[in-house]
Amino acid sequence: MLLPMGSHTIKLPQYVFESNLGELLARLGECRSHSEVCFDFQQVAYYIPAAIVSVVAMVNELHVQDVRCSFVNHKDCEAFRYLQRIDLFSEMGLDLPEDFFRRSGSRDFVPVEKINSATKPELASSLGECIDPAGGPAKQVIEFSAGECILNCRQHSRAIGYVSAQYAAKSDFARIGVADCGRGIRGSFRDNRSKFYREGMTDAEAIALAIRPNVSSTADLPHMYGKSPNAGVGLSMLRDLVRQTLGHMVVVSGSGWWKQDGVRSPKSDGLPGNGFFPGTVCSVCFTRKQIGDYDAMLKEARRKVKGLPEEESDANLFL
């Protein structure tokens, strides 16, 4: 197939996992400086949900900026059916005929959904049900995690976000991906005049700060309801739940990335090739068989994140 003339062509990679998500995002970020962009799907075989929603967010951002987008080899790539079922194409404005029936009920993925001010908690619940239709602890962990990620996107990005989830039986990984092309984490600290913000702060530093317990960019803002809803523990709790299941977590925002693999110390740096993604992407991955007692996992996470002992001195509060 001939590629459209005059376009910047981005050859989408064959596989995107947590380890090379940053490379994809750096390449997506390059699209902003062109008036026409062609997305070549020829090699695409498998993308984790965070990669899928990042492509969707970027294409929609390009639409908003009147950058003409075209797509080639998408119908011939190995992942075509999967990408169609997960609504990657339709969420990018590309309506393709479907020669399959969409099943309702339990599946091993949740198609891409928009995150905006109207997004309801039921979306997080449906993500949880996809991973664990029986409604066990895995459903609750995913529900909790998706709820925190969706709320973060809604509160901080000032943009439409996208979310998807998938369970990969072979690896036993349950993944959630959230992406937006908003102001980024550093932008949120800056715009909210957070006491944590300083001139010259890098995106990687801003991400690391946001993951630290008790840090929220909005905590010190005067609020119409007297207090900010944010205590700055959501991401930290999420990080510890991921650690407990020997999973993976990646956060990319602007020019920085932050990554945790299992129980190893997290790593953080700039995107490859001085790349820049205009927004924030969060990828959360749990090893499903490592999800045991959800209540015990939360207690362990709270002990690590909040530090203070949880005294049962309030027993009289409970009827």
Binding site: K120, P121, E122, A124, S125, E143, G147, I150, L151, R154, Q155, H223, M224, Y225, G226, K227, S228, P229, N230
Partner: peptide, 18 residues
């Protein structure tokens, strides 16, 4: 008021205040 899963911190904050 909020369903089986209590998730939305903004909604919770408004409810507390109002």
């Amino acid at each position: 008021l909020f369903g089986c899963f209590l998730a939305d911190g903004d909604q919770a904050n408004a409810f507390r205040f109002n």
